[in-house]
Amino acid sequence: MAMQISALNSKDTRPQTLGVAAGSGYDEAQAPAKVQNRDSGGEIGVKVQRHGQWALMSQAQSRLSMLQSMEQSIVSTYRQLVNLARQLDQNGGQSQALANQARALAHQVKSDGWLDGELSPNSKQGQSHYLMNRVDLLSPRNQGETVRIGLPGGNHLSLKLGAQASQSRALAELAPQFARLGITASLSGQGKLQLTGPEALFSSPWTFQGQGIRVPAGNPIPIGLDAQPQVLEQLADGLEGTNLDYEKARLRALLVALEQHRKALQAQRQQLMARMEALRSAAQLASQDPDALGSEIKSYIKGGDFGAQLQALMAQANLSRQSVVSLLSL
């Protein structure tokens, strides 16, 4: 939906007339020109303000388009997995053909780029996803620790980890420290620390040096990170095996997760649309402060990581059968 916004009125509280003292030598012939110059400055301010509003609405519209594309990718993937699950129930003996379908879907999802390897919304397109499987920085420990990490390209991190920190608190403390190097830290579907950033930062093993709590003390040791697994490739491999009951359970779990992701994206899209509409209405009716609403939208647009909201949804109880199947009617 294309959003339009009218020009905001400039609230110029400066005096409209100038008091002139007698004998000041003031040239009254120059007064109109000066007032005209002042008025021109006000017009420029309005134009600048209008341009800023248009630019902001354009950014918000781009964000809406991204959210919509993610939703569409989720719906398409969901429907294909439902079809795959039905075929598996009816024709379990044709597992090789089903495995080929799963690999074709994996290729499609990767080419689209809107979902990552775990079929979660991918707000970091063009970047790589890795898991820190060999070092546990998220589990609680009785003591705090400083872990020093050396990354490719001469980059370094010094991570301060608190004692008895829960998984969520540890992640909240680590995220801003990784963000200094352009790396997004989040929680994977398996509860591992997932890092997303430029491929160059993961091109070779990282070196770790700790204090003997999470990481051995002494000389730095190289530890490689694992590329995020492609869950659809794992499904395809499993369909070629003999434990088809496990793959049926995997499919059910993927369907539930996709429904949760769709709900989170839908909520974000609706919230952003409501903020945009409020900004448009405020500009027309002056019932609220458009600048305040604009700042709110800016903050919302910059908050592009969906991890926290998705994790909160995933922590809820399993969806009912009616809720899971609701995607089929879209």
Rank of each mutant, 00 (worst) to 15 (best):
D291Q: 12
R250L: 12
K263C: 07
G154W: 01
V46L: 13
Q125Y: 07
A175Y: 03
P216R: 05
A175L: 03
G41R: 15
N318M: 02
G42L: 13
Q80W: 06
I183R: 05
W206P: 00
S168C: 00
A85R: 15
A7E: 05
G218F: 03
G154L: 02
L251F: 02
L225V: 10
A200W: 04
G191T: 06
L137T: 03
R214H: 04
L244F: 09
G238C: 06
L235M: 05
H261Y: 09
L319I: 04
D237Y: 07
T242M: 07
L239Y: 08
L84H: 06
Q190Y: 08
G126F: 10
A274I: 03
G294C: 07
L193P: 03
P15L: 05
L64W: 07
L239W: 06
M66G: 13
A236D: 06
A308D: 13
A264F: 02
N318K: 14
T184P: 00
G126W: 05
G212I: 10
Q288P: 04
Q209N: 01
R79F: 00
L201A: 05
K302L: 12
F208Y: 01
R103A: 07
L131N: 05
L157F: 02
A317E: 11
G210D: 03
S186Q: 13
A315L: 13
E118L: 05
G93M: 12
E233F: 06
S281W: 01
G19T: 11
L310D: 03
D305I: 07
H261R: 10
L181A: 04
A217N: 02
L235A: 05
L293V: 12
A217M: 06
Q36E: 13
N243I: 01
Q127C: 05
A179L: 07
I183H: 02
K34T: 10
Q177R: 08
L254M: 15
L244W: 03
I223H: 01
A278N: 15
Y26G: 04
T207C: 00
P32V: 08
E240F: 02
W54R: 13
K192F: 09
G42Y: 09
A104M: 12
D39V: 14
M57E: 08
V75R: 15
N37M: 14
S40V: 13
L131D: 04
L115F: 11
L84D: 11
D116Q: 14
D89S: 14
S120I: 00
Q101C: 09
T146H: 06
G224I: 00
S287R: 11
L18R: 15
Q270T: 08
L64F: 03
G197K: 03
D226I: 04
K160Y: 00
L88C: 11
G144N: 09
T146F: 04
G23H: 11
W54Q: 14
E277L: 11
Q270M: 11
Q211C: 00
L159G: 05
N37Q: 15
S186N: 10
G126H: 10
A60N: 08
H261G: 13
Q234Y: 00
M314L: 12
Q260C: 07
L201I: 09
S123D: 07
G162T: 10
L195W: 02
S76V: 14
D89A: 15
T77V: 11
K248D: 00
G212T: 06
I183M: 01
Q228R: 08
E71N: 12
Q94T: 15
D116H: 12
S188T: 06
N83E: 15
A31W: 12
A21Y: 10
